[in-house]
Write a protein that binds this DNA or RNA. Structure first.
Length: 117
DNA sequence: CGTCTGACGCACC
DNA sequence: GGGTGCGCCAGAC
């Protein structure tokens, strides 16, 4: 009942363990390029029923942990490290951990998943 | 409708 | 590297 929210959760759920994506990336993959802030708003509203959404794999474009602003920075960092993502200071090495769906997966996500060249 | 807000991003300085 | 400003989208009033 909320296309945007559904698309966001679908994309985030597709991110593999040990990999990360940025808010802007999620927005793009969800079919709303530019709606990075709105993605954060969706994740901010996650509840108990969304326990299968790996929100910790979403960081900002520079690999920074944005959840410190809402008091979840320590938790997110711990969760990421527990799945093998190394943090340099308070940031993730995006060149090394960023995930993009391959064509096959993109097809399965049945959305507007244009992959940047 | 108009305004404000923010788990953002980018161009600048 | 840090800091500022502005545009962005979706929601809440």
């Amino acid at each position: 009942m909320d296309p945007f929210r559904s698309a966001v959760l679908r994309v985030v759920r597709a991110v593999p363990e040990g990999r990360v994506v940025s808010y802007g990336q999620v927005a793009l993959l969800a079919g709303r390029p530019g709606a990075a802030r709105a993605v954060g708003a969706v994740l901010r509203g996650l509840g108990e029923a969304d326990g299968d959404v790996p929100w910790q794999r979403v960081v900002n474009a520079r690999g920074g942990i944005s959840t410190y602003k809402v008091g979840h920075g320590e938790l997110q960092t711990a969760l990421l490290e527990s799945e093998g993502v190394e943090l340099r200071g308070e940031r993730v090495d995006m060149a090394r951990y960023t995930w993009w769906p391959d064509d096959e997966l993109a097809r399965r996500m049945s959305g507007v998943c244009a992959q940047p060249t």
